[in-house]
């Protein structure tokens, strides 16, 4: 439950102990949509196998309302970037994100989607999908186990339950002035241009002491 929600107020909690449940429209709305996350059905690499396993009988992601994998971005509100994003694939991933309707969320699953993982030094591997689209939850692991996938979904649900619909700190999908799509990078000559979206990502500052250890000058 969100910290500043109406359920956290002491008198409301006292009422709730007596069996009278008071809620706000915002909490009800967030509760509903956090329990009906529909992921977009696509897998990029081996992490997708763990993602599939998370939906199967043993781990059963349906318990969290997120089992309905949609074959079209029009019906999905969660993008699970499961696996290595090659530079050739990155424009498709960003375009699919743009085609999803708001509100939409992104889970970067596994080391590859976060940073390139073991293929970070590969000539054709994107070093993290957060360079082009905003990522809500990062799930580390190589690959993450289905339990970690479920934990990521629960984290995302908690984030959704804390989102505001009105006011200056409202969520992006509730703000008409904030665009919901991001520029699609262009793949040409074996590389992506631009190398990252400067609006949402910037190269991390390199510490002075380990500057010579960092062989990756491109970042």
């Amino acid at each position: 439950m969100a910290i500043n929600s109406i359920e956290a107020q002491p008198d409301v909690q006292a009422l709730s102990q007596q069996g009278v449940h008071v809620t706000s429209l915002e909490s009800l709305y967030n509760w509903g949509r956090s329990n009906s996350l529909w992921p977009l059905q696509f897998g990029l690499a081996c992490c997708a196998i763990e993602m599939i396993a998370a939906t199967m009988a043993r781990h059963d992601m349906a318990r969290f309302g997120a089992e309905v994998f949609r074959p079209s971005p029009r019906q999905a509100d969660l993008m699970i970037v499961a696996g290595t994003v090659t530079k050739k694939m990155a424009p498709m991933v960003v375009r699919l994100y743009n085609q999803m309707p708001e509100p939409k969320y992104v889970i970067a699953m596994g080391a590859c989607a976060i940073s390139g993982g073991p293929f970070r030094d590969g000539y054709n591997v994107l070093k993290g999908i957060d360079r082009y689209i905003p990522v809500d939850v990062f799930i580390p692991g190589c690959p993450p186990r289905p339990e970690a996938m479920l934990d990521g979904v629960i984290q995302l649900q908690e984030k959704i339950r804390g989102q505001k619909l009105t006011g200056p700190h409202r969520a992006r999908h509730a703000d008409k002035s904030v665009r919901g799509d991001y520029p699609v990078p262009e793949y040409a000559g074996g590389d992506l241009s631009p190398p990252y979206n400067p609006e949402i990502w910037s190269p991390p500052p390199v510490p002075e002491s380990s500057a010579e250890d960092e062989s990756d000058s491109e970042t």
């Binding site: 029009r74 498709m92 699919l96 743009n98 085609q99 708001e102 008409k176």
Partner: peptide
């Protein structure tokens, strides 16, 4: 939740 139409969103879905 205002609608946010865009070029990519309005184009037909061809798997990205």
């Amino acid at each position: 939740t205002p609608a946010k139409p865009g070029h990519d969103k309005q184009s037909s879905y061809e798997c990205g």
